[in-house]
Amino acid sequence: MSFSKEITLSKSSVPKVALLVLATIFAFGVFEVGFDQGQLFSIVFGEQAYADMYLHELTHDMRHAAGFPCH
């Protein structure tokens, strides 16, 4: 006679895919808000991005408030 039963397991490891995705998001987000001085937009807009600093200005107030060095 055969029967089936369902058990619940708790897996303690963090999946490698999750680790990769989350670590990438961490690095990108912290750089964008805390450190970018035009570098990200310079990929598309070239040298002008360093003068405009759109992202820097957008994240300016949070950058100061969160304790990152600015100006």
Binding site: I25, A27, G29, V33, G34, T59, M62, R63
Partner: peptide
């Protein structure tokens, strides 16, 4: 910026 920073530190 709060949403972006929060998402990244939260990660």
């Amino acid at each position: 910026a709060g949403a972006i920073l929060g998402t990244s530190i939260g990660a």
